[in-house]
Computed example of a mutant assay.
Amino acid sequence: MHGACNAHGPARIHLILDCYAGPTLDWLRDGEHLPERCVRHLPEADEEELAGYATTARRLAHLGYVRSAEHHLLRLFFNRRLDEGRAYDMVIALHRDRGDTAAVTTWREHKAIVLGPHSLTDEPLKEVSR
Rank of each mutant, 00 (worst) to 15 (best):
V91H: 04
L94N: 04
A69F: 12
Y20Q: 09
T101E: 15
D46L: 04
A93K: 00
N6S: 15
T55A: 07
G22V: 14
R80S: 08
V128C: 08
N79M: 10
G85I: 01
H110P: 10
A7G: 10
R37W: 04
W107D: 00
G85P: 14
V128H: 15
K126T: 14
L120I: 12
L28A: 13
R98A: 08
D83S: 03
H41F: 07
N6E: 11
L17K: 14
H71W: 10
D89N: 02
D18M: 08
P124D: 02
V114P: 05
D100G: 03
Y65E: 14
E48P: 08
H71Q: 05
R67W: 06
L42H: 11
G85L: 10
M1Y: 08
R96Q: 10
D89T: 01
D46P: 02
L42Q: 05
A87Y: 10
E32H: 15
D83I: 00
T101W: 08
P35G: 04
P43F: 00
C5M: 06
H62G: 09
S68F: 08
S68N: 03
I92H: 00
T121K: 06
E49R: 13
H2N: 08
L82Y: 09
F78Y: 11
E127N: 14
V91E: 09
R12H: 03
L73Q: 07
H118R: 06
C19K: 14
L94F: 02
G31E: 01
S129L: 10
R86D: 04
R86V: 08
T105G: 01
N6A: 04
P124M: 02
E70I: 12
I113V: 04
D97Y: 04
Y65L: 09
N6G: 09
T105K: 07
A103R: 13
T106V: 02
D83A: 09
F77I: 01
A54R: 05
L42M: 06
W27Q: 00
L42Y: 02
P124Y: 04
E109P: 07
H72S: 00
A54W: 01
L94A: 02
V104T: 07
A54N: 03
G9I: 15
C19I: 11
W27T: 11
D122R: 15
A112I: 14
D18T: 07
